[in-house]
Design a protein around this nucleic acid. Structure first.
Lengths: 127, 127
DNA sequence: ACTTGACTTGGAGTAAGCTCCAAGTTGTAC
DNA sequence: GTACAACTTGGAGCTTACTCCAAGTCAAGT
């Protein structure tokens, strides 16, 4: 169970909250690189892989599709983002989107608060 | 084009940003009530309907499924939310979820800022 | 030797949310 | 009266993101 030997798919699933089927699916669609296999064919994961999965989970929460994540995940460790101006711009745009999402969500929270206090629904516009 | 005669599906589509197919689909699945028809069978929409669609769009942004929206949209104007304790609780829960979403998104924005400044990706955990 | 459990594979199935299509009707413009 | 645009309907098809399945392999335990 120590990291020197890597983690099984089940351990990885437990650590990330992704199901083992989902992890295999991410490999199948090329979102995760083909995992190393042990002699018996079983997948082995290391902390970098788990790190990648956490990044996937984070980007997913912001509404990014699995397909759009691929370019980010395919960058390797030391890569300088400024060498990929399109990616850099996409990430900036994505940040803007998230900031807008936050503003909109805040508006919706205010709206719900009004509903919860006025105790009815369907009677006002948000915009 | 004035509201007295209501809006066509196309006008409604333009006002809400939902495609006409999507509006018909929402009617088909019972998310929107069956729209009034003109003598020729064409759908007519009024500002309450457009209001409902805006509410749908807002709830959608917070990740609520179309199915979960139904009970809220089926409440009528004057209905007192406290008469529907389950709905009231669901709405409170939903607000909590959105507030959590906001916190998480803020963390991701911070993370992206680090990436944009450090100019590389894939090298740190968020949690 | 045999069972059990954790895995492997390719591929099928599922759910949500649209999106598109064909065939038909209606109303206006020329 | 004929072309055209804007609708109608039911139903098929599509995309995303899983989720499940059958059949097989392999290692460890009894």
């Amino acid at each position: 169970m120590s990291e020197v030997n890597g983690f099984s798919i089940k351990q990885t699933s437990e650590q990330t909250g992704l199901s083992d089927d989902t992890i295999r699916y991410y490999e199948k669609i090329g979102l995760l690189p083909r995992a190393e296999r042990k002699a018996n064919g079983h997948r082995v994961y290391r902390s970098e892989d788990i790190n990648s999965m956490n990044i996937i989970l984070c980007l997913k929460k912001t509404g990014m599709s699995l397909d759009d994540m691929k370019p980010y995940l395919h960058l390797s460790y030391g890569d300088d983002l400024t060498e990929f101006p399109e990616l850099y711009r996409m990430l900036q745009d994505h940040k803007k989107n998230i900031e807008n999402q936050i503003v909109e969500l805040q508006i919706i929270v205010d709206f719900i608060n009004i509903k919860l206090n006025r105790k009815n629904v369907n009677d006002s516009k948000i915009h």
